[in-house]
Design a protein around this nucleic acid. Structure first.
Lengths: 280, 280
DNA sequence: CCGTCTATGGAATGAACATTCCATATTGAC
DNA sequence: GTCAATATGGAATGTTCATTCCATAGACGG
């Protein structure tokens, strides 16, 4: 059983595997070279296929795939396949990598440091996610919609309230009329009742969705007032009653989410609206 | 076998499936709704996972996943999974394409897109900056200081208020007693007057510094109450009266700053404090 | 040219998995 | 409140799949 070369450590990520393959391709027997070439040329096939389907496609036996994986220190083919799948999943996580190297340096970091690094990485990931998820056209439509509104009603409760309150602050500085809804109990509905179809609303709500926010957004929509919203799922009650809606998936650290990505989005929206107005 | 609704054709690609799910989500029974929400929120999991692992993650039975697939006309779960895999294959290209538009801000892009990209980039820079600027030891000291406080007073006005209000929300969830200062005019000083040296304060202020915040922080400090602060310059009035202070330089886009980095910092601090308390 | 050692193909095996089935719970109509 | 219809949980089932095993082919050294 000299199959598993003990000298080489088992590759932990796709890049390591790739290097290992390139490095050792000279000393591999014929069929394994064939597999190596196929693997690097068709990584997606490896990620999605089954051993049998890949074997056919690469013109080898399934057992050869297993042997190939074992040559590089894996338990079997499945272990190797995980790396190919992780590659598709992660795509963006150079941040996680940086974080991992940070944590290797000092063996015993204070817990607070780990938490801090976790939130930093989560923030990066969240921002990448929203950058990829927001369609420029939809964003432009939302900006147009809100820019021509007489008054912009900002609907947000609880966790999303800090975002709307910052938007209200910024709108104030930018001389854009807006009305912050959700501050003191009771007067919200009275304020919203004054809205006309010349106005518009921007609603923010994350799971678990505050029922008032959804109800208020629905009410606005039913009165013909355009509603733009920011939420975290296509299943959000906001999604169905909004003229335009955007999905932001804040990455979490240990179950807690910061609002980093939402804040960036909110500011981009706010400034874009002001800019569009300024230009006429 | 009225499971497979013959009215609906079997979705042939992910978008068709997505539309079908959103369209019919109202008429789905409870567990199937749960699966529907999970599927749209975690498409990658569906693509790679096994029925068993997905079932656990979505808190349903494997059989429910099969039934869900059959409700939408598929033979079984596997048929549905193929669509999620195909999506992942195609997405990777368009996804990277989107991220590439972040770099170019040619005239061809809508202004709102340029602004959006600008804030995304600024957020990344800000977070990198704070990750580099915060010293783990100082952070740990700040956490310790605040964790042993009886009540944490959160001092913030105007631009920094969204941060403290989110912290107050999170502290509430985490059962950490805190007092949000700066909300309604007048009672602030009365609230702060009740603070004792067993308490602590966390102050946030950015240029141009609200004079009240600085005054309140100074007052607390002079009464022997530990003050931790987050500000944007060593010359900030907060820096000189704080036991520990941290500098966050939010990168700006066209003169406007989002609060992305401050939010990440605030959440890290909040969670660290709660965690330290929980441990004794 | 023979023996040994490694590589390979293909069948056998056993594990993982999707799917089905049935008993129970829940919902809705009368 | 009762009954029917539908939804759900969980175990049983049968299939697909990765893996192992073994017989044979090929390479290499003597």
């Amino acid at each position: 059983m000299s199959d598993t070369d003990v000298k080489q450590p088992v590759p932990q990520d796709f890049d390591a595997l790739r290097s290992a393959i390139l490095e050792r391709k000279g000393e591999l027997p014929k069929r394994l070279t064939q597999v190596a070439a196929y693997a690097l040329d068709h990584p997606d096939e490896i990620a999605f296929g089954t051993a049998a389907s890949i074997a056919i496609s690469a013109a080898v036996q399934p057992s050869t795939l297993v042997r190939f994986a074992q040559h590089f220190g894996f338990d079997g083919f499945s272990g190797l396949q995980l790396l190919f799948r992780a590659r598709l999943r992660e795509r963006t996580s150079s941040y996680e990598e940086r974080l991992r190297t940070l944590e290797q340096d000092g063996a015993s970091l204070a817990e607070s440091t780990t938490i801090f690094n976790g939130f930093v990485a989560a923030a990066h990931r969240s921002i990448d996610a929203i950058a990829a998820a927001v369609e420029p056209d939809a964003f432009e439509r939302a900006v147009t919609l809100l820019a021509k509104a007489d008054t912009i009603y900002l609907i947000a409760k609880r966790r999303s309230y800090p975002i709307s309150s910052y938007m209200a602050y910024a709108f104030g500085k930018l001389k854009v009329r807006c009305q912050l809804v959700g501050t003191s109990a009771g007067i919200d509905d009275d304020m919203l009742a004054m809205a006309t179809s010349k106005d518009a609303a921007f609603a923010i709500s994350f799971s678990p969705y505050a029922s008032e926010s959804a109800a208020q957004a629905r009410m606005m929509a039913s009165r013909g007032i355009p509603v733009v919203s920011l939420t975290d799922s296509a299943f959000s009650p906001l999604a169905e009653c909004s003229t335009e809606w955007f999905e932001v998936v804040e990455a979490d650290h240990a179950g807690f989410r910061s609002l980093s990505a939402s804040m960036a989005f909110a500011m981009a929206l706010t400034v874009s609206i002001a800019e569009k107005r300024r230009r006429g």
